[in-house]
Design a protein around this nucleic acid. Structure first.
Lengths: 146, 146
DNA sequence: AGAATTTGCTTGCAACTGCATGTTTTCTAT
DNA sequence: ATAGAAAACATGCAGTTGCAAGCAAATTCT
């Protein structure tokens, strides 16, 4: 049986939802002002770039970015069209796509990071102590289970 | 000058973004399964219903939901089309719209709440202690400034 | 007062998302 | 070995969002 949320929980939820949206908007705005594509592009490029030898299965990206399957599919379409990643069929399991980041893709990711990082720091990091950051990470970990 | 985010800050940021998205998806899914409209509808109805005499200026809704202006405009279009709110021109300042919730709108909001609340509790509240919830609210407050 | 600016809201168009479904490849159970 | 189920990806269509531009009421400045 599921009981009702306490007022403190509701309060925390509302703040979480509102604050996170505001932060994302601000970060997106930084990227846009710098002439870069949306945050999701970065996240996908990051996943591909960060994984072994710059290749991942598409489904892996899905899991890690929490994007819907069809959104990853179409986002990869766009990335591919821009020459930022390549899509190959997996040799081992023919159902999978293997994504490979290109030099251009890696360059874009590298160029975006300083802007992204500065935005994170300005709107997020600068307002938190080290302990705060760890606390927040801990709370998110609690929320992320199953 | 803006310095770079520390690893702890980056970690917290990534977890925040990913976890929040996951939670929102889960909550949305609950509403959908119960045959209700999206969360944003609830949020807007909530703002209108919760304010004095069930009316607010549209711009107020914008501020409180953090939705873009054109999104509020079009979301209100849909709510109006469904007979959930009414849009009137403000007597005092002709630029403003005043939103008035209808009986139907109020009823929908009331019907949605138990489902929404249960989802919040299941995926969020149940994983946090009272102290956790307060801590999280506190952290969000720090992040929400200016 | 009259022009210029600001504020609040709307809208055409293009891009993106969600839903439902389809296709192909692999896995499972008999 | 084979039928049935599942996993991974793609896609047509309708609905939603973002951008840029627009309009109208109020405020500010000269």
């Amino acid at each position: 049986m599921v009981s009702k949320p306490t007022p403190a929980v509701i309060e925390a939820w509302e703040r979480l939802v509102r604050t996170e949206k505001t932060l994302l908007d601000k970060v997106e705005e930084h990227l846009k002002r710098a002439g870069f594509p949306p945050l999701e592009w970065y996240h996908v490029l990051h996943e591909v770039d960060a994984s072994t030898k710059g290749m991942v299965r598409q489904t892996e990206v899905q899991d890690r970015t929490k994007l819907a399957q069809y959104n990853v599919c179409r986002l990869v379409d766009r990335l591919e069209r821009e020459g930022l990643v390549e899509r190959h069929q997996c040799q081992v399991d023919g159902r999978n796509n293997v994504l490979v980041i290109t030099a251009k893709g890696r360059a874009l990711r590298r160029a975006m990071w300083p802007v992204y990082a500065a935005a994170i720091e300005e709107h997020f990091g600068a307002r938190l102590s080290q302990a705060d950051a760890e606390q927040l990470a801990g709370l998110m970990a609690k929320l992320a289970g199953t």
